[in-house]
Write a protein that binds this DNA or RNA. Structure first.
Length: 451
RNA sequence: GGCGGCAUAGCCAAGUGGUAAGGCCGAGGUCUGCAAAACCUCCACCCUCAGUUCGAAUCUGAGUGCCGCCUCCA
């Protein structure tokens, strides 16, 4: 099946052709680990995880790499405030990150490079940039990238170098030659973590880490590089000029950027303070519900977050999960029903192949759900397609207490004896004490645990 | 100021030239002791104006409103 991906660099959908047929190198910019992740982060990682799942389901082998920025100003400041080592702080939030992402049903990356573990690679790249004249050392011992030396600077973000000068404050020049020059190596400041380098002790600037880690872990040209829209400039712009000045090869074949999550029509961000952390939200709704909510709209459009919205999404998701559970053991479809299901399956694949249109794909899932319920055929295909979107539909394997189980039996017997008073009382008790909803059919009862 | 994006029902949200997917909510119905689940029916002149076209939510132009990037940000 042909896959089409919208590429930020060319601003158009392009047929997806990995550098090596059948193999995909996929890099997603990770988080700076100084705090808990919010819904905006959740959106990026749910999206890229789902893209990765689609690629895998389509038969590609995928190497998926996502970094942690574990050294920067904010980390140093937070650690100082807390009176702990910076790496104690970063480890804490890396652990929290892993927990949060696990709740969202995100598969672990193949590799989680941390900036502080790639100093040699970064120093080598910076050295190469200095040697080739793309970078220079200022009086203060900082090393800067000279954007004027790179022909295509501004191509990704559609910015012109001379126009960038306008908004820059003069007092922020710090020994730069051009206002847009950015730091590759920061000379040591008292009390900060430092590493040795040919330019003296210091620490790396932000952008160089992704160039170095992507190169080390995925090679000099990678297929997909993803991140939030806010990374287009300057982060990804800078990555391109660093990497390509060193390797003379196209750094990235497809640039993929997520739209923002908004609150009251404004971008959710740490600086505005209008953010909800993933773990806050997960006290109210399940990770699956949040994941489903995030996948319901196309990844490039803004997504308005609200708790009500997530709860609404959950109702829909429950419907799909219900269908899967109800018809897990129903007979396989055949004949006309099978044909209809094949058509739906095809529509699903067309949707996800067209720039990862998960919203449309979910629409197909509801059609499929109806088809399964009306025809009473196996829900296997629905479970399979939900799995591609990372939506779990496995039977609730969780054990219920013996007491609850006994109560359900007692209730059923009471009902069979037309003792409705007892039956109803037990229904309420099961619901209130165990969060178990009992559903009756003509011949049996079934139950589900409310989440 | 420069650049970019968005505007589809009460709400959420696909659709980018052929006559508006899907979900939530709501109304009615089938089923049912009750409840739940499931199913059926109903619920949009696609921000405005002007154009192109046999035909436009979809293309063009103008306008209005909102948002983003240009500084750390997913």
């Amino acid at each position: 099946m042909e896959l089409v991906i919208y590429d930020t660099l060319t601003r158009q959908k392009r047929r997806f052709d990995p550098l090596v047929p059948g193999q995909v190198s996929f890099y997603t910019c990770g988080v700076t680990v100084y705090d808990y992740c919010h819904i905006g982060h959740a959106r990026v990682y749910v999206t890229t995880d789902t893209m990765r799942r689609v690629l895998l389901a389509a038969g590609y082998s995928v190497r998926y790499v996502q970094n942690f920025t574990d050294i920067d100003d904010k980390i140093i400041n937070r650690a100082a405030e807390a009176g702990i080592e910076y790496h104690t702080l970063t480890q804490r939030f890396i652990d929290a990150y892993m927990e949060d992402m696990g709740q969202l049903g995100i598969s672990p990356a193949d590799c989680y490079p941390r900036a502080t573990e790639y100093l040699p690679q970064m120093i080598e790249m910076i050295g190469s940039l200095v040697a080739s004249g793309h970078a220079y050392v200022s009086d203060t011992g900082d090393v800067w990238y000279s954007v004027d030396t790179f022909e295509g600077y501004g191509r990704l973000s559609r910015k012109k170098r001379d126009e960038l000068i306008a908004g820059v404050r003069v007092d922020a020049m710090d020994g730069k030659r051009h206002p847009s020059d950015f730091v590759l190596w920061k000379s040591a400041k008292p009390g900060e973590p430092t590493w040795e380098s040919p330019w003296g002790p210091g620490r790396p600037g932000w952008h160089i880490e992704c160039s170095a880690m992507a190169r080390q872990e995925l090679g000099e040209s990678i297929d997909i590089h993803a991140g939030g829209e806010d990374l287009i400039f300057p982060h990804h712009e800078n990555e391109i000029c660093q990497s390509e000045a060193v390797t003379h090869k196209p750094f990235v074949r497809y640039w993929v950027h997520n739209g923002f999550v908004t609150i009251d029509n404004e971008k959710m961000s740490k600086s505005l303070g209008n953010f909800f952390t993933i773990r806050d939200v997960l006290t109210q709704v399940s990770g699956q519900a949040l994941r489903f909510f995030l996948l319901r709209s196309h990844y490039r459009t803004p997504l308005h977050y609200s708790l009500d919205g997530v709860k609404e999404a959950k109702v829909g998701l429950d419907k799909l999960v219900n269908t899967v559970n109800l018809h897990r053991d129903s007979p396989e479809a055949f004949g006309a029903v099978l044909s209809s299901i094949e058509v739906l399956k095809n529509r699903f694949w067309q949707a996800v192949s067209d720039d990862f249109n998960f919203s449309e794909a979910i629409g197909v899932l509801f059609d499929l759900s109806r088809m399964i319920n009306t025809s009473e055929v196996s829900s296997g295909v629905l479970a399979e397609l939900m799995g591609i979107l990372g939506l779990e539909s496995a039977a609730l394997g969780e054990s219920i207490t013996q007491e609850a189980e006994d109560l359900m039996k007692v209730r059923w017997d009471a009902k069979q004896n037309r003792d409705f008073g007892t039956a109803d009382r037990l229904r309420i008790e099961l619901l209130e004490r165990f969060q178990i909803l009992v559903e009756d059919t003509k011949t049996e009862y079934r139950w589900k645990k409310l989440t």
